[in-house]
Design a binder for these strands. Structure first.
Lengths: 207, 207
DNA sequence: TGGGTTACTGACAATTCTGTAAGTAAGCAC
DNA sequence: GTGCTTACTTACAGAATTGTCAGTAACCCA
């Protein structure tokens, strides 16, 4: 009524809407994104959202796109920032695990992968992403192990195992913490050490 | 019209409805269960479903319950049938991986875990399930390794890793198979071998 | 054969959701 | 200031969904 109407720059409005939508996505999945809920939460009317994104599907797509880009950026930043020449990749590895596991990234991605529809299909490029990560790790491994480095597929599988476990972890985390004696943080440490040992070929050769 | 009305025994009708609902759950998640869709698919009217399950929530709950029970039964059967005294647990392990991975079990469970609501909360007892599995494996391990057996937590973590990876696998499988050079079956074999080696303590002691 | 139980149906109610249309006002260029 | 663009709103339409209710008919048992 008396309250003056606020008019944000389009980019800013879009960002605010995407933030709210991503929270809902992480919590309840793509179906949990309800235009009216977002509108109320943001203090706007729901047609405003349609104005910015065209349709609900457009919004979901935009959320997926931004989430994937953000994850990509974070991963690239972490990997690029890592001391690749350093003897052990411990730090790099732990930071990658953190990027994937700690933030809402994994949960959002898990939703998108599990509920994937035509809208989000082309946005998700899990295979390529995995390949890039594995390539970096394998390069590292080769530099470290020389001729004793196993096949590329071995590295790829190890990276796959890590990322799949992290997805599972993102999904099941709440129940694990309620299970007596399981500390999620400890588990991540354990996983890191296991993988590093494996990649360092304490078990020599591909298993 | 002219078609005679069919009247099934309640249990049979419930089972048929649950079957269809579980398919929808695995494919599109709990939100994907639509009374009208199920009714059309089954050639019945949607109030029939409400008659048998009281409400949509009741149906979802029943689906979750049956899926969890079914998984539990399959796992128990496989574990009980396994030659626990045998030197290697390879067969047991592979069959457990199959039960979790091959059927729709993992995908259904992943949905339920990810989308878990008040309705399904008490049905899912992931922690306890995991504990039981880990206990069996640890017993096996102790028998096999004697005094050199690491802490129970080490076994628990390994079992966790396996199940989490399988959840992730169930989610990401379709994209992995499209990724060049990744054969899901090969990956499962690789994982089995890795875990067995680890549990056999090729890496001695907890990592 | 008759009668009771209940699986099942059709029609309707009520809510909720996405999307449209027309109009309002905020900010910017001039 | 004047006027243009566009972020934003109110009101409404249309579709889909769950749930109710009264009634029908299939099966079982006497």
């Amino acid at each position: 009524m008396g309250a003056k109407r606020r008019r944000l720059p389009a980019e800013q409005a879009r960002a605010a809407i995407l933030d709210a939508a991503e929270r809902h996505l992480a919590a309840r999945g793509p179906e949990g994104i309800r235009l009216k809920d977002l509108a109320v939460e943001l203090g706007i009317s729901h047609p405003t959202i349609l104005h910015h994104f065209g349709s609900r599907a457009g919004l979901v797509r935009a959320v997926a796109q931004r989430a994937v880009r953000s994850l990509e950026n974070d991963l690239v930043a972490v990997i690029a920032g890592g001391d690749v020449d350093e003897q052990a990749a411990t730090g790099l590895f732990e930071r990658v695990l953190e990027v994937l596991g700690e933030r809402r990234h994994a949960r959002t991605l898990a939703w998108l992968l599990l509920a994937r529809t035509d809208e989000t299909e082309d946005v998700l490029d899990y295979g390529a992403q995995l390949g890039r990560l594995a390539a970096v790790v394998h390069q590292n491994r080769t530099a470290h192990l020389g001729d004793r480095t196993p096949e590329y597929q071995d590295t790829l599988f190890a990276v796959m195992l890590a990322s799949l476990a992290l997805f599972g972890h993102a999904i099941a985390n709440p129940m694990l913490s309620t299970h007596a004696g399981v500390n999620p943080r400890e588990f991540l440490h354990w996983l890191t050490r296991l993988l590093l040992r494996y990649l360092d070929c304490s078990i020599t050769g591909p298993v």
